[in-house]
Design a protein around this nucleic acid. Structure first.
Length: 282
DNA sequence: ATGACATTCTTGT
DNA sequence: ACAAGAATGTCAT
């Protein structure tokens, strides 16, 4: 697979945004390509390079029908497999991670006494901001066009009392691994650290059980943590997932298969879902 | 298709 | 304490 660049994502994003603005008009390949200054042919090329799928197949992966298929048996998916306990393995089919909760105090004190290193790295979904503690990855988010400071602040404000230091030498190895599917199964599991409330951590642990190519509903998630009526609260907790992509909150959708919200933008959620479909196909 | 509202948990005052 | 809000879900038109 050829490597895909930041510029690729920006074009893909623009195409997807345009598509969902104008879906009523049934835009053709040419219609989609024109606004980003491409020919239909170039667009074809872009998608296959970036996602490993043709535009047609890529879009196919984002239809309601496809979403419903991903939701099939979603309740059982969360129960299957071994327990993902307080330091168990997760992520059955792709990136293996181990996680641990941050020391109880660290959350309550909003990160005081904690040193967090951060860095910016290119990813298939735009520039990513990556945060690590000595215990592992604790945060990851995405920048929209020129919004580096905003993306950084979005993560920092979750633990406002932590001490932050830019140090991309610390974060680079994480970024390199996370976005290279061929490295997902290599060696040690990826270490991540959850800093959040009990409830949030329970929800985020559940997210780790959703394999690539599958999806669950907010209600399923609620049931899986023994709170079948808490779908709405679960939605809020999912929305506060600090480790975007690695903790696959993009694999949660409405019961009907509707792709609802995403903290880093609905377009990005669609892009990730489509890109993952490409990884599976390839 | 659209809109009201029931419900659970977190957070800011 | 309390009130507001959140990436939901369901039921009535």
């Amino acid at each position: 697979m050829k490597h895909s660049s930041l510029e690729d994502y920006e074009k893909v994003q623009a195409v997807l945004a345009y598509l969902y603005e104008n879906w009523r008009d049934q835009p053709s390949l040419e219609d989609l390509a024109a606004p980003v200054g491409m020919t239909a042919d170039q667009l074809q090329h872009l998608f296959t390079r970036w996602a490993g799928l043709t535009p047609k197949a890529f879009l196919q992966a984002l239809t309601l029908d496809h979403a419903r298929a991903m939701l099939k048996d979603s309740a059982t998916i969360l129960e299957t497999s071994y327990e993902v306990g307080m330091s168990g393995p997760g992520r059955l089919h792709d990136l293996f991670v181990t996680h641990e909760g941050m020391s109880p105090g660290a959350y309550k004190s909003k990160g005081s006494g904690l040193t967090i290193n951060y860095g910016f790295h290119p990813s298939p979904f735009g520039l990513a901001v990556v945060m690590v503690t000595p215990h592992g990855l604790c945060g990851m988010g995405f920048c929209d066009e020129g919004g580096q400071a905003a993306a950084l602040y979005d993560l920092q404000r979750r633990w406002p009392n932590a001490h932050y230091m830019e140090d991309s030498a610390q974060t680079a190895p994480y970024a390199a691994r996370i976005f290279a599917p061929d490295k997902w199964r290599d060696g040690q599991p990826l270490r991540i650290t959850f800093i959040g409330s009990d409830f949030e951590i329970r929800v985020w642990e559940s997210l780790l059980k959703i394999p690539m190519g599958r999806a669950v509903s907010y209600g399923d998630l609620a049931t899986s943590i023994q709170k079948p009526k808490a779908a709405r609260a679960v939605g809020a907790a999912v929305g506060r997932n600090p480790i975007s992509f690695v903790v696959p909150c993009h694999r949660v959708m409405g019961k009907s298969g509707d792709i609802t919200g995403y903290h880093w933008g609905l377009t990005r959620k669609r892009a990730i879902l489509g890109w993952e479909a490409g990884q599976l196909a390839g």
